[in-house]
C-alpha cells in the first residue's frame, strides 16, 4: 500500500523543490539518449569527437545545441546522469526496506495478469514496445513526465501544460481500453 497521498504529495513536492533550490529542475528522459551515446561511442569511437569549443557527434541530435549531449556522453560522471543512477539506488533501498516485491509481481503486475493472463512473454513484449514509444515520444517532446509535467507545470511553463494535455489525451483512452479489470 503506498503512502497516504497527503504525505506522499508533500514529500514528492519537497524533492522537486529541493532540486530547483539547490541545482535545477528534475528531468530523466535525456539520460536515455546519453546512455545510447555512451554505448555508440564505445562501439564506434568516431561517434563523439572533441572539438576546439567542446564536443560534437556524427549524429545530428547528439551534436545539437553546441554538442551538449555529446559532452555529457563523453563525461558520464555529470549531475544529470548520476542523478538517474541515484534514483535507481533510492528505489532499490526503498523497495528493500518495505519488504520487496513478490515473485509473481516481479514478472508482471497484477493488473496485467487480471486482464491478459499469466504468460510473461506478452507482458515483456508490451513493456518493450511501450518503452520504445515512451522514449521516442519523450525525446520528440523534449521531456517526460518528470521534466515536462512535474517540473514544467510547477514552473508555470507553457510547454508543460501542452505536454500534459497530450499525455493524458492518449493515456486515459489507452488505459481504459486495456485495463478494464483492476487486479
Amino acid at each position: 500500500m503506498p503512502l497516504n497521498w497527503k504525505t506522499g504529495g508533500v514529500l514528492l513536492g519537497l524533492v522537486f523543490f529541493l532540486a530547483v533550490l539547490l541545482v535545477k529542475p528534475i528531468g530523466v528522459s535525456t539520460q536515455f539518449v546519453i546512455l545510447d551515446g555512451i554505448v555508440a561511442d564505445v562501439v564506434n569511437s568516431e561517434f563523439i569527437t572533441k572539438t576546439e569549443e567542446g564536443y560534437t557527434s556524427t549524429n545530428a541530435y547528439m551534436a545539437k545545441s553546441g554538442g551538449k549531449y555529446a559532452k555529457s556522453a563523453a563525461n558520464p560522471l555529470n549531475y544529470s546522469f548520476v542523478f538517474v543512477l541515484a534514483m535507481m539506488l533510492g528505489a532499490f533501498l526503498s523497495a528493500r526496506t518495505r519488504g520487496g516485491i513478490g515473485a509473481s509481481e516481479r514478472q508482471s503486475p497484477a493488473i496485467w495478469r487480471a486482464n491478459f493472463g499469466d504468460a510473461p512473454m506478452k507482458r515483456y513484449a508490451v513493456a518493450f514496445l511501450g518503452g520504445f514509444v515512451v522514449l521516442y515520444g519523450a525525446r520528440l517532446a523534449g521531456g517526460c513526465t518528470s521534466g515536462h509535467m512535474m517540473s514544467g507545470m510547477m514552473q508555470t511553463a507553457l510547454s508543460g501544460y501542452i505536454f500534459a494535455a497530450g499525455a493524458f489525451a492518449a493515456a486515459v483512452p489507452v488505459a481504459m481500453m486495456m485495463y478494464k479489470k483492476e487486479a
Binding site: G137, A141, F163, A167, A171
Partner: peptide, 14 residues
C-alpha cells in the same frame, strides 16, 4: 511537444 506527449501517454498507459 503535443505529439510527443500523445506518444508518451499511449506507451505510459500500455
Amino acid at each position: 511537444v503535443f505529439i510527443g506527449g500523445l506518444l508518451l501517454g499511449a506507451g505510459w498507459a500500455a
